[in-house]
Computed example of a mutant assay.
Amino acid sequence: MTKEIVVTGAAGFIGRWVTNELLARGHRVYGLDDFSNGSYRNIKELNESERFTIAEGDICDEDAVDELFNEGVDACIHLAAEIDVQESLEDPQSHFDSNVVGTQNVLEACRRTDTRLGLVGTCMVYDMAGSEEGISEEHPVKPASPYAGSKLAAENLAESYYHGYDLPVVILRPFNTYGPFQKTGMAGGVVSIFTNRDNQGEPLKIFGDGTQSRDLLYATDCARFIVEGTFCDEAVGEVLNAGTGSDISINELAELISTDGTEITHVEHHHPQSEVQTLRCDPSKAEAMLDWEPEVSLEEGVDRLRTWLREEGAEQA
Results as ranks from 00 to 15, higher is better:
65 V>S: 05
166 D>K: 14
69 F>N: 13
90 E>P: 05
120 V>K: 03
93 Q>I: 11
75 A>I: 05
150 S>W: 08
78 H>V: 10
116 R>V: 09
155 E>N: 11
65 V>A: 12
92 P>L: 00
120 V>A: 03
60 C>Y: 00
164 G>V: 11
101 V>D: 01
65 V>R: 12
77 I>H: 04
131 S>Q: 11
151 K>Q: 13
116 R>G: 10
133 E>P: 02
138 E>F: 00
166 D>H: 13
119 L>E: 07
138 E>S: 07
150 S>C: 15
117 L>A: 03
106 V>P: 11
146 P>N: 12
120 V>C: 04
161 Y>M: 01
109 A>H: 04
70 N>M: 01
110 C>D: 00
161 Y>A: 07
110 C>T: 02
165 Y>G: 04
159 E>Q: 12
68 L>G: 02
60 C>E: 10
115 T>N: 02
58 D>N: 15
57 G>P: 07
112 R>Q: 06
111 R>Y: 03
91 D>I: 08
108 E>P: 01
89 L>S: 12
135 I>C: 12
87 E>S: 14
89 L>H: 10
134 G>F: 01
124 M>Y: 06
66 D>N: 15
120 V>H: 04
71 E>P: 03
83 I>Q: 12
155 E>H: 07
124 M>R: 08
103 T>H: 02
135 I>S: 05
133 E>V: 00
61 D>C: 09
60 C>F: 00
138 E>D: 08
74 D>Q: 06
148 A>M: 05
107 L>S: 09
155 E>F: 06
59 I>P: 06
77 I>T: 05
71 E>I: 00
90 E>R: 13
106 V>L: 06
126 Y>K: 10
78 H>T: 10
111 R>E: 11
109 A>L: 03
128 M>Y: 01
137 E>W: 01
80 A>V: 06
144 A>L: 15
134 G>P: 08
91 D>T: 10
96 F>R: 02
155 E>Q: 15
147 Y>E: 09
131 S>L: 01
79 L>D: 11
93 Q>V: 10
58 D>P: 11
91 D>Q: 14
64 A>T: 01
134 G>L: 01
60 C>L: 11
161 Y>S: 03
150 S>L: 11
70 N>K: 07
145 S>M: 02
77 I>D: 05
106 V>H: 08
140 P>S: 05
92 P>H: 01
70 N>H: 13
155 E>G: 13
122 T>Q: 05
81 A>D: 03
89 L>T: 04
131 S>H: 04
129 A>F: 00
85 V>F: 08
96 F>E: 07
159 E>L: 11
134 G>A: 05
99 N>R: 12
79 L>P: 12
118 G>E: 06
158 A>R: 05
65 V>N: 13
154 A>C: 06
153 A>L: 09
